[in-house]
Design a protein around this nucleic acid. Sequence first.
DNA 1: CATTGACCTCAAGTCGACTTGAAGTAGAAC
DNA 2: GTTCTACTTCAAGTCGACTTGAGGTCAATG
Lengths: 142, 142
Amino acid sequence: MAELDIAEVSHRAGVPASTLRYYEERGLISSTGRRGLRRQYDPGVLERLALIALGRTAGFSLDEIALMFAPDGQPRIDRQKLAAKADELDNRIRELGVLRDSLRHAAACPAPSHMECPTFRRLLDAAASGGVAVPGRRVPGR
Amino acid sequence: MAELDIAEVSHRAGVPASTLRYYEERGLISSTGRRGLRRQYDPGVLERLALIALGRTAGFSLDEIALMFAPDGQPRIDRQKLAAKADELDNRIRELGVLRDSLRHAAACPAPSHMECPTFRRLLDAAASGGVAVPGRRVPGR
DNA sequence: CATTGACCTCAAGTCGACTTGAAGTAGAAC
DNA sequence: GTTCTACTTCAAGTCGACTTGAGGTCAATG
């Protein structure tokens, strides 16, 4: 079985068929042909989908991911971009670490009200001054 | 000057006026009155905005945050929820850590193509099997 | 040969958190 | 007293990644 049916791909990759069609439309994957109406895929699409999933979890947009494939379909992953994303992740991880520790402290804090807890207030100031970022926040000028 | 003008709040909190109106509409903050048309705010709104910002960076939705204020305006932060969010953050942090390490490895990997690098392939399998989560991904059945 | 059911296309809807635009108003400066 | 300007309301638009729905098609099953 060289060719996979869309249902097969959907099942194996754990991705809805609608998403496969969407990815195709966006140029992220391509079908090798049709059996009747139905899309057929090369088994390699599974690896490609894994790559896409990976990119998504690393925080790349679909557009960015699309650029990571050469026109011939071979992944052309820019090592610099990977390193940059790793650094980005590093920052986010550090932020989240601080946040987590502070949340835990606040959860265990004996102060009658959170507002009277110095740790909580410090956290608050950090958040207010934009020291910590929200992932999906739109930046002014975009 | 007990009362702050919306422009003042916007400036001090680093939040656009449109967002302040939006937060008011959502019941997250309230203005004490108007001078002419313009909203006036109690200085306490700044602390509240900081609290909102904090909640956002911790990954709470505006609806969740709204529930963290008692009707009287006093923050009523559920310590259990904080702890739960901390645990959630902990998981995410661990995932991101793995991802970061793998990205870094891939970036430095000597294999001619990423596909031939065992570390990269392992990472790929993890991503494919949904071992790592994308923050904003919609879960089936929601 | 007719039915079934899973696929197809294309347009439109969803979600959350805002932003933007049009049309109006009022305090303050001239 | 007029103009300026920063605010006001309300509806609609935006962004990314998909999902959903209506109406159509076709390989396989009976």
